[in-house]
């Protein structure tokens, strides 16, 4: 499943050719919307854009993830592919994991480039690379597991493009929160922010959705 989706991506390059540029564009637009000159006086003096860079980065990732998720199920929507998968006797949990893994791989690729872009555009330092890497990985897994589950709800529907964001974004609010806080700590080594605890929250979220997704995917795939 994963290999199949990734192979489709390799030949079609929708994620790389459309979703990635979309993410970069959003980053640039954030830069335009928020003045780069202003200085915040908090514990430290930093440009506004640098201060809020973690939040902006994760918002961009969320928006890109929505597109990638839509794409993952658009692949199956045509020609009753989901029915075919079911008839092929594949374990629903396996389909769920395969889908999620494929999106995860694609999203990590997107994030790597976006992260580099954010680093260049927003100019934030990285104080704790280990925490940052863990955050990126855990948050991405959380986003894709939950996202895959919810995207399946709307699979094959005309209203999918509008429904999936409505369903997924509130659910991912804790991930946005956790990822942003953990990244803040990773970038600025903020003494008031327990970065690893927030990363722990991301891990718990991912584990929960791993369980829920594997259980719930069966009923979702049936007769859909």
């Amino acid at each position: 499943m994963t290999v199949k989706d990734l192979r489709i991506e390799l030949t079609s390059r929708v994620v790389m050719a459309q979703i990635l540029p979309f993410g970069l564009l959003i980053l640039i637009l954030f830069g335009l919307a928020i003045s780069p000159d202003l200085v915040v006086v908090g514990d430290a003096r930093r440009p506004v854009i640098e201060e809020i860079a973690p939040g902006l980065f994760w918002l961009t990732v969320l928006l890109s993830a929505l597109m990638a998720l839509g794409r993952a199920f658009a692949l199956e929507a045509d020609d009753g592919n989901l029915d075919a998968l079911r008839m092929a006797g594949l374990d629903p949990a396996g389909v769920f994991l395969g889908k999620a893994l494929a999106v995860t791989v694609q999203l990590v690729a997107v994030e790597t480039v976006l992260g580099f872009g954010a680093f260049v555009v927003f100019g934030a330092p990285v104080a704790r690379p280990g925490l940052l890497a863990a955050t990126v990985l855990l948050a991405t897994v959380g986003i894709t597991l939950a996202g895959t589950l919810y995207a399946a709800l709307a699979a094959g529907l005309r209203v999918r493009d509008t429904l999936v964001p409505l369903l997924v974004l509130p659910v991912l609010a804790p991930v946005l929160l956790g990822a942003t806080q953990a990244s803040r700590d990773a970038l600025f080594a903020d003494p008031g922010v327990p970065g690893w605890s927030w990363a722990g929250l991301l891990a718990v979220f991912s584990l929960l959705y791993l369980g829920v997704g594997m259980l719930a995917f069966g009923p979702l795939l049936e007769e859909s």
Partner: peptide, 19 residues
Amino acid sequence: AVRRLELPPEVRSRRAAVL
């Protein structure tokens, strides 16, 4: 919104229940 989807009733109910 999911409850209002244009789907066969059983499919819609099942999706809504999971949600």
